[in-house]
Design a protein around this nucleic acid. Structure first.
Lengths: 342, 342
DNA sequence: GCTCCTCTTGACAGCGCTTTCAAAATCTGC
DNA sequence: GCAGATTTTGAAAGCGCTGTCAAGAGGAGC
């Protein structure tokens, strides 16, 4: 089916040796102008494209950067991958993705696939892969880890606690006293950090931390719905919700909508991540922006630098509260959800 | 950095020849049980993993399926890619993605990258790549094209016109007479089909087609905002909007929200695609469902079958109108948008 | 005109794996 | 126990490319 034209074909066509063709392609050495021209013409004429696998074998590298995400279809990873893609554009490298689906065993499998495919470097996003495994990998190739901090590894992450702190404080400043939190899975470090930030904000404002106002979700929309339903079912009183990510905030919003609870009139809602679509939400969602695309970009640049043996200092990545229309001043008294003075 | 263990290492360790090792790995021929055991043990002991690039070179295949999307970070493609990923799971093949960003030149570049990387097969999603180019590619490898129908190619697509027809008819049945349409880019076949379906529904209902109610967008949220703004700016009268995809519907929704126009109270809104997030929209979006993930799955299965020389008949893929809460019976008279009797 | 240098070029040996091909080993049947 | 058929095995030739090495072609200097 494939009758590829090879480097030798080009050599024959141009009347030179294969080595010469290789040289003009890679610019590895001077080549007489006339021969160079002949080669270039032959390449064009035959529509020659180097076989990357052969190049890779010969040079011991695949020109591929492996990227482990948790879920390729998630908008959050989508943005990061876009960043990676952009950073690699114009370089000879190309990304190759594999998903861990938030499960340690699947992450390990994904890792195996990528390593088996001879990736030259690795970007690992939000993994729950054991540290030792990563430390072992880093001996073999450049690795950048996102979403957690590990001693001895190149890590790229935002300050999740700080972001959560700001999101929560924003609600407090609007007068809210009973703020519910929809947390991420406790198995993930970033979820823990966000919970901590939420608690810290409460504490700094002299507000009590009420465990009954915290529900654990799994970062997906349906869990946001469930979280609100369970809060409501057990009669929890709250005038605001801080969700550990936008997707759960979306779910929360719809659950509130179904109960006739209006956002932000009755309940204010803050998310985390600031997905592209959050500004098109109705009401547009107030959210803690995480520069996802930029993070993907930085991670990719970083591994590229490592591949070239250069050093690289990633730009500091910080969260920023984006205030939109899903939050408003506490209205007193709310007809449905009475404010419990603390 | 990488000191890989090779097949010959295994052979030496097991006391057999490289050929034998290859045979037990690929099961290409009978091997004496005792030697097989020795080899397997050696593989385990050395933690050997075959070098895919070398395998590929030797066998003339890369075990890679190239996938051209338009935008990897888009939720729509995300779902399709998830389908592709799932279909390839458990097979030796792995997907590799490249994005065309809805631009013919970038699509061509993406195609070049994938072909250069020796993909064994290609899934091309919603491309505007010229037919001839695709017909040329199909001579070299299995290709499945999604989102358009081309004679002589394996195409997988839903009936866009039919879907659009149903979405529009739903609005008509709710009493709407002046229905605006936010179209997709006219360069893309599916966008054209959707426009046609919209027109057909109007016609069948005896409603006039008013070009002033059609605005072209680019399938992204901001263009939905712009579309509504431009409709409003030129004083167009409408009580419903049919958007050619959900993302533009999101944009339309926010633009309406800003003007104080309520969905569905003042204007009903229908999207197309039924993204995962659309059911969490507020109001939950009525949309023409396109089984994106399943489409990705079918496409991948199809190319796999072709790679194995088998024939494959993809399951019929059809759209289905999902009625949610962004559409409602026409209310007369609307305070802001008076109904123009036709 | 000859030697010595520098620059350009082609031959050739891999990269790690598969796959013929033929030799070695084993098994038949008489 | 031996010829012949049948397995099982290893040697060796690639797959398409890179990179070393040494030979060939020019130039410079005397």
């Amino acid at each position: 089916m494939r009758e590829a034209v090879t480097l030798s074909d080009v050599a024959r066509e141009a009347g030179v040796s294969p080595s010469t063709v290789s040289r003009v392609i890679n610019g590895t050495a001077r080549v007489d102008a006339s021969k160079r021209d002949a080669v270039l013409k032959a390449i064009k004429r035959l529509n020659y494209q180097p076989n990357i696998m052969a190049q890779g074998l010969a040079q011991g590298r695949s020109l591929t950067v492996g990227v482990i995400t948790q879920e390729i279809s998630s908008p959050y990873y989508g943005e990061m991958l876009r960043g990676v893609e952009q950073a690699l554009e114009g370089t000879p490298y190309h990304p190759i993705f594999a998903s861990g689906h938030w499960r340690a065993d699947q992450e390990e499998a994904a890792l195996k696939v990528l390593v088996g495919r001879q990736v030259d470097a690795l970007v690992v996003m939000d993994s729950s892969v054991p540290e030792e495994r990563l430390l072992e990998l880093v001996k073999k190739m450049p690795v950048v880890v996102m979403g957690r901090q590990i001693e001895g590894l190149s890590c790229l992450s935002i300050d999740n606690a700080q972001g959560a702190y700001e999101g929560t404080r924003h609600l407090i400043e609007l007068g809210h006293r009973r703020i519910a939190h929809i947390a991420g899975p406790h198995s993930h470090p970033d979820a823990i950090e966000r919970l901590k930030g939420y608690q810290a904000a409460l504490q700094d404002a002299g507000l009590p931390f009420d465990p009954a106002l915290v529900v654990e979700g799994d970062y997906l929309e349906p869990s946001g719905v469930l979280a609100v339903e369970s809060l409501l079912a057990r009669g929890a009183l709250f005038t605001a919700i801080f969700a550990a990510n936008d997707q759960m905030a979306y779910g929360a919003n719809v659950a509130l909508y179904r109960r006739g609870i209006r956002v932000p009139h009755d309940v204010s809602l803050v998310g985390f991540d600031d997905l592209l679509s959050s500004s098109y939400f109705s009401p547009p969602l107030t959210s803690v922006r995480q520069p996802s695309q930029e993070m993907g970009w930085e991670a990719a640049r970083w591994v590229l630098a490592m591949l070239e043996g250069k050093s690289y200092t990633p730009r500091p990545l910080s969260t920023r509260l984006i205030v939109r229309e899903s939050t408003s001043l506490l209205r007193l008294p709310s007809s449905r959800l009475r404010l419990q003075m603390s």
